[in-house]
Design a binder for these strands. Structure first.
Lengths: 345, 345
DNA sequence: CTGAAAGCGCTTACAG
DNA sequence: CTGAAAGCGCTTACAG
């Protein structure tokens, strides 16, 4: 009856011996299988508790051909975006056995799919979380299906079946934000676009255009500037839009970093914000609070999206009720701060 | 001679059969062991290449009682810090089999050590990277040793033996930055401290004090304000320091977020920067560029530190020369931008 | 220099 | 309702 664990930790065999059952029965208890006699289950559970037994994840992984790991796949130009989402995932799995592995990829490489394939066949994770912009690539999602790895795609719009995506309503949120501008009397409103090919950029632009039309204004293409979600592109856009004689009295930038760039240019020119120029961004990143004046923006609920996505992918490993459906869409909300003013005159 | 891999992927047995050797010999080739006949090795390598064989990490993990995973342990109040470091680690392991798992912990919880113990005994990683401030906890490092998990501690000063830590020279770098201020004629210089108990905070304060003394000035305790590396604490510090009748003409804040808070207060009061107030921060975070005027700061080489730390911990799995020593100390560098001005009069 | 056997700690497939 | 056997794909310990 003496217990002598080999490597320090008790194994399934120790528990089986201690409870006087086969290890298969212990396995059944661990995995919560049905059809065990109550007394047997209790005896095993008592043995598990007494020995402080924890199943070895490596052994399970080998037998199941699956690791208790979630993989975060991303190629995102914005660091804060990745981190916020990551924090949401971590919050969801905090009290579980699951681990989070982070895997950045290069969407511009033609080996991207091969890299992902190699990584997934090697690590056989429980599931994959895919961040924008690569969440928009159908070939990637298809690859996961082919490799039998469940996935959840994150995006600014529904990118897949409800159990395979989590989305925010960027378009509506941006429209609401831009209505702040039109309601304040602005008629010449500039727009800084996100990177080409990004769904989020398209959604935000659609929201901007909707607000303009709702206000009965017309879209002026010359008031639009290109951008790539980076600060520097905001600088360039600001220089383009603010150096015109008939410069806009307000600018919506498709994310906060670019909005900060626009403000940099404006303040450098001696313009006052929001006196001479109103600005709105998107993300509610730390930058939005740190710059002066504090930026009015749209809060993108990334942390919550990360939580939802993890629950969708691995709810049953997080002790969640299977029956309870996890929502698919989260709302972005306008955060009013100090960069929107009414039009003079 | 027909090859029929069970689960899609070829196994060590397939390679052994194909090369007409035992699987033990294949194992020797995989692990680069000495003392194999050249011809044998080549035959095995040819079989590996032909079959596209990749060792199964789960099986190795079970047999070796060790996962090919690096764990990033942190409890850092600054998101960007974590992300930069993480990116350095990811860069180092990009072309290897290694994976990075991220594990945030709660340093205020009395179960912190137990949590870490449970996580490490479960996951048995190749090694652990510990970020400040918990990198400063000797009990944590000791726990890793006890569990036989190699670790590298990151810090603003040498925290451990050279093969177990990577450090920056915060103190010297801050002294150099503050000399910019004294050289410009500032004599009333405020200081915003980092959180109590953080080594980085102590190092930066030491650097500040050294610069003050070098300039022949004397330290004025009333010109010091508490802070916790967060923006809000910078706001509070700014309000304290700038509302005095004899307000300082320059302020060094122990990180960029707090510097942004100080600037927020100053600009809100109508002060001009750097005309009325010079400001210097620390980190060279994105915020430093985004705010206006662009912040003069000290670049903390976190990405490079992450790379070094990963190499130190897992160099031999990254195909590095064992003999080549990995440096332990990296230098922080002053980045001059637009927030330091000469004293009027 | 190379291999046959046993083992890592789990699970699946099959019995009864 | 429960178990004995075989297997997941590697490695260690021991032979020769």
């Amino acid at each position: 009856m003496s217990i002598k664990p080999r490597s320090g930790q008790p194994t399934i065999n120790d528990v089986a011996a201690h409870a006087d059952v086969s290890k298969k029965t212990v396995s059944r208890v661990i995995n919560g299988e049905e059809g065990l006699k109550g007394a047997t289950r209790e005896r095993v559970q008592a043995a598990i508790a007494e020995l402080g037994y924890v199943p070895n994840p490596q052994a399970r992984a080998l037998a199941l051909r699956r690791n208790m790991t979630l993989v975060l796949l991303h190629d995102n130009p914005n660091a804060q975006t990745v981190l916020n989402f990551q924090n949401g995932v971590l919050r969801a799995i905090a009290n579980s056995d699951l681990a989070l592995a982070v895997r950045p990829v290069d969407r511009r490489s033609d080996r991207m799919l091969d890299d992902v394939r190699a990584f997934l066949t090697r690590h056989r994770p429980l599931g994959v979380l895919i961040l924008p912009p690569i969440s928009e690539r159908d070939d990637l999602a298809q690859l996961c299906s082919e490799l039998d790895v469940p996935y959840v795609r994150i995006g600014s719009a529904l990118l897949d079946a409800p159990d395979r995506c989590v989305a925010s309503n960027d378009s509506e949120a941006v429209a609401a934000a831009c209505r702040l501008l039109t309601a304040a009397g602005h008629t010449r409103i500039g727009f800084v676009r996100g990177p080409e090919g990004f769904r989020s950029a398209a959604e935000r632009e659609a929201g901007f255009q909707a607000a303009i039309r709702t206000a009965g204004l017309k879209l002026d293409p010359s008031l639009c500037a290109a951008g790539n979600y980076r600060f520097e592109s905001g600088i360039a856009a600001g220089e383009k839009l603010l150096n015109r004689p008939d410069r806009p009295t307000a600018i919506f930038a498709s994310n906060d970093e670019m909005a900060a760039g626009v403000m940099h240019v404006a303040l450098g020119m001696g313009l006052s914000i929001p006196g001479d120029l109103s600005v709105i961004g998107f993300d509610d990143s730390p930058t939005a609070q740190h710059i002066w004046p504090s930026l009015t923006t749209v809060r993108w609920p990334l942390v919550e999206m990360g939580e939802l996505a993890a629950e969708k992918l691995a709810g049953r490993f997080l002790g969640h009720d299977e029956a309870k459906a996890v929502p698919t869409t989260l709302s972005s909300a306008v955060i009013e701060r100090d960069t929107v003013g009414v039009v003079a005159g």
